[in-house]
Design a protein around this nucleic acid. Sequence first.
RNA 1: CGGGGUGUAGCUCAGGUGGCAGAGCGUUGGCUUUGGGAGCCAAAGGUCGCAGGUUCAAGUCCUGCCACCCCGACCA
Length: 570
Amino acid sequence: MRWSRYFWHTSKEDPADAEAPSHRLLLKGGFIKQVSAGVYELTPPGVRVLRKVEQVVRKEMDRSGAQEVLLTVLNPGELWKETGRWDLYGRELFTLKDRNGREYCLGPTHEEEITDLVRSYVSSYRQLPLLLYQIQVKFRDEKRPRFGLIRGREFIMKDAYSFDQDELSALLSYENMKFAYERIFKKLRISTLMVEASVGAIGGVSSHEFVTLTPYGEARVAHCPNCGYAGNAEVVKLPRAQEREEEPKPLTEVETPGTDTIEKLSSFLGVSADRIVKAVLYLVEGTEPVMFLIRGDRTVDESKVEAVLKTENFRLAEDREVWELLRTRKGFIGPFNLPPSVKLYWDNSTYGLKNVVIAFNRPDYHYINANPGRDYQQERFVDVCQVEEGDPCPKCGAPLKIDRGLELGHIFLLGTRYSEPMKALYRDPEGRERPIFMGCYGIGISRCISAVVEQYHDEKGIKWPTPVAPFELDLICVNPTDPQQKEVADRLYLLAQQTGIETIYDDRDESPGFKFADADLCGFPYRLVVGKKVKEGKVELQDRHRGERTDLDIDTALEHLKTLIEKDKS
RNA sequence: CGGGGUGUAGCUCAGGUGGCAGAGCGUUGGCUUUGGGAGCCAAAGGUCGCAGGUUCAAGUCCUGCCACCCCGACCA
């Protein structure tokens, strides 16, 4: 490709609206162009990268026995009503009507459609197992799109679905996908962690996320440097604390005016936060009050609350509701003299505490030296505590590390969540009708492009790994008005194409510095500079990853380069 | 959905107290230059986010709306 004729436009200025390195560099490097919030166009070089990522994924999916389909973007509303998700999915669903008033949505994921497809052809155990996938654009009306391709409202995803007779067989499909995913991320050169993930309200059997560690991720990932365990922070179990050895002191009421936060209370009384018991009041379905007691230095993880309450329909009580229910204010809520309607849960962190500070629903007062058994009864211990750095690993007990992670892949054993309501049934060998056991497996393709850039860049630009680079080689002619340089560069360009090296030939009438800067920004793994040294029969090879420059003989340069590229791709 | 910020040339931005719409980069034409985003000369390029209001006069002040970015909440 001759750059002078190629639709590729980089920018000298940093884009104003981009924070994350991947967002900034993809915009500046002219790979993507924003259309609206979370909606991006890909330019020709952007598409080249996308296709390469897709090809890696496609190859590994095919290898693991999956068959490619192409489902539709436009999904009829009826299918979504069959599973109840038309309403459950909420405002994240882009919906529209056709001229006759029929309802559709733009597919945010395709369980309904794939289940509909499979149920119309599969009716016997002889047709199972089955593994189908597609690479398709998805639409989600995200509350907050951000960081370029990292979280878009329109994005490309690979989604696969497995169909099995029973859970055991489905587990094999699941393991098969797990291995495929490990191969895929290895080939994309993205380092990922496989973490245990939430099975969510649907009640799946097993779920894992493949995350890459970056500050621009949305997930908190807990991982153990000692044993290698990794989990999404919201699923990492925290056990009960050690019982403290202390003599109980007499219970005392103390006036604590205006101490409506743990910090204020802690400094007012001169008591550390881990000796305070904090009460948090939630309303389930907007009406049922539920109180969680947790140690003062910890915070409630609402994903864990969701798991305890088995619903996502809950929220913190408002000031007015706290007053109406308990005749107190926030900061002075406690587990004493509660109306019978209030359900009480104790977080594991409150186990074994002695001589604690705790509120008793009287504004501006706290108890000090309260003790379990004597002053309050603890029943119903649960784990709703947000995991923090240093908490014990659930596998080996060593201190955990916490980092932010970007979810690139998610594999999920669904069970019969879709097959049952949608009547995707098959007959087993005994002739009984049974629901198909399903799994689903996603990879955010667009997001992977960002993840690669996050992992491979410097202050000058992107450093594409060869397997996903838009071009493997950037051929630069320093001075095209020098006939000898031009002749050598033209010849090398033709030869590179014959050798099967994906080459962009920077034949633009620009200054050398301009071309070098673009080369750094656009991130080609290799650059061949045709300049002054042609007089000595040499061209210069520059390696973007290692930063090395080597002079090569004109005649053997491409052979040498071909070897390097093949090595990178293997 | 709550909080904060921004909106002026293709891009990055400047335009106290209201008074002729600006710069750098990019673009076009010309000359020079050729190993790290070149130099000189000339030119084109604007619904100052949109609508309304105050005023002799609004990019600037007021009201409403919209878009985009960031933080939080949310997140198969």
